[in-house]
Design a protein around this nucleic acid. Structure first.
Lengths: 339, 339
DNA sequence: TTGTAGGCGTTATCAT
DNA sequence: ATGATAACGCCTACAA
């Protein structure tokens, strides 16, 4: 089955290749009648434009590249939904590249996007070093999502403020032994930790920081260590996935989440929204981050806009996992306790 | 900053374009010394091969397209990991396209892949009609994952057997009022329901089927309806995400999962593995499905292999959510009860 | 091992 | 509104 090309359609429709191209791109320059005719012929022949040829020939790129750090973390699915919602309203195409929980995978993914000659890259969750990211930004237009860097257009939630909210919530609940389960210190995401530290010192309470990772199982182990060594009455995890690990550790220790140990996550993934887990968390509005990033990317695509940063206000979502008074079994509007 | 091309590298290195091409493709035909020299020059100039041009020019495609139904369902992340593990060992590129929980999105995604002229498509979780899928299979080489269809190469777990295992497990636990929370009847995935039905009729027990969807929130509502109307002592959900909804509904009804109502899911996503949820489920070995699919795709890429079907044996994973005897608070090897 | 030249399927510029 | 014709950057025989 030979691939049919624009020429086949042109010949069959009795017009030039140029007209077929114009018709399929949806730009002005064809009469309605011939356009309809071209489409009819094209459909009959089963013509599908060759994107490779199109991208090679076209000057102004009609493609945005999207990088997502990890498909196992639903945050990135939320971000992607936002991106797609905006992009789908245009004629622009998306090329997707994904990393993994392993570091170093992200520069490989960016390389793929660059090799595809996308007009702009929306990168969500980069963990490469600042210097590397800046080097990439020099070669290509980049919109960084969730990761802020001077000189690079970025769309972020105010993680510092979000972490403040979460920590202050725990302080207000009367906790004094509040631990922070941290992400790797080298990944460029330290605002949550800073917010926690400043909220703690602002209240004159000693901080407890337990280093951990992005993997739930490791978070569980680290949380178990933490519980045994520090006996905190509250744990604030750097994201929802890790918070799940904390819940596990709390249960394993024979304690009751929400009652004996308050647990707070970050991201407001659908996981935390589940009544079974009822995880108190901070909502960075991931979907909106994606939307904003896409809008910014579209601007970038058109012209050379100077770097811009969009910051969204996070929101604290209080659920049963951090609410001691909720330890009874009675029904409640915002979720249910675990125990 | 003008994009630098293969010609720039050739000129700077004092060789022909062909040699540079050969060098970068990693095929035989260059002396080691000149290859090193070419790479050195290329790196200095910041040369990145243009994939669009490469794909346009090359006869034998070095690209596989991957379609994933829904980024919000971790099963597809597992499948993708398996695919990538195999593909990453080759020089072959992956082009990714994703659908959504909304139907009809998948044919659009496949179109993108076809437009990118990938050599073969690995499609995980297609929900289009059989007839549509067959039509696509006529135009392009397709490996269907999780969805089996005659005449199309596919890699699947034996869902019928898996559902049998799950249902028989519940029967063995002494349940007689076992309900099945079903996926949409139009999506091409009915084996799980068939397995359930046959296991039930085999035991001479009346089945209870509650239609539902892929969205957790809807599953929760449907499960609530089910609990009230049928008062089942066990619910087998078509996948883990829906099972989570069932857990929610059970708790909302003031019942205890595992003790009052046994809950079983399907997929063995990391969600179900979490001790907090401790969800009994069926493991379709998603990662292996991805691996097998990738291997098959690589074969297809090389030659015109006739359609082949790979079937993996699923495995029942028993956890606390379906084990009545686990309703105490004592420690246990496989997870912990919810209550 | 190295170089030459034609072609891949579009887009874009310039006429008409 | 339509058509002719260079690019676009790379691959691939083929020749040397």
């Amino acid at each position: 089955m030979r691939k049919i090309t624009i020429e086949d359609v042109a010949k069959a429709a009795g017009v030039s290749r140029a007209l077929v191209s114009i018709a399929y791109r949806g730009v002005a320059g064809v009469s309605e009648s011939t356009r309809d005719h071209i489409f009819e012929v094209g459909k009959r022949l089963g013509y599908v434009p060759n994107l490779n040829a199109a991208r090679l020939a076209s000057k102004d790129i009609r493609t945005v590249g999207v990088f997502l750090q990890d498909l196992h973390n639903e945050v990135f699915a939320d971000v992607f939904d936002g991106i797609r919602q905006v992009i789908d309203e245009t004629e622009i195409q998306i090329v997707l590249a994904v990393g993994s929980s392993a570091p170093g995978h992200d520069s490989k993914a960016l390389d793929t996007l660059i090799a595809a000659r996308v007009g702009v890259i929306i990168a969500a969750g980069l963990t490469m070093a600042d210097s590397d990211l800046k080097r990439y930004a020099k070669r290509t237009k980049i919109v960084s999502v969730t990761r802020k860097l001077e000189g690079v257009s970025s769309v972020v939630a105010d993680d510092y403020a979000g972490a403040m909210l979460a920590t202050k919530h725990l302080l207000a609940m009367g906790h004094t032994r509040i631990a922070f389960l941290a992400n790797p210190q080298t990944d460029g995401y330290l605002d949550r930790q800073r917010g926690y530290l400043d909220a703690m010192s602002g209240a004159g309470v000693a901080p407890i920081v337990q280093p951990s990772s992005y993997v739930r199982m490791e978070a569980e182990v680290d949380a178990a260590t933490l519980l045994k060594a520090e006996k905190p009455t509250a744990v604030f995890a750097h994201n929802d996935l890790s918070a799940l690990g904390v819940l596990d550790a709390v249960l394993s220790a024979g304690l009751r989440p929400g009652a004996d140990v308050a647990v707070v996550g970050y991201d407001n993934t659908s996981l935390s929204q589940t009544p079974v887990l009822a995880l108190t968390t901070v909502d960075p509005h991931s979907h909106d981050l994606g939307r904003e990033a896409a809008k910014l990317a579209l601007e970038l695509l058109g012209a050379d806009v100077s770097p811009k940063t969009v910051v969204l206000e996070p929101q604290l979502i209080v659920r049963a996992s951090s609410t001691k008074s909720l330890e009874t079994k009675s029904g409640r509007p915002e979720g249910r306790p675990l125990i």
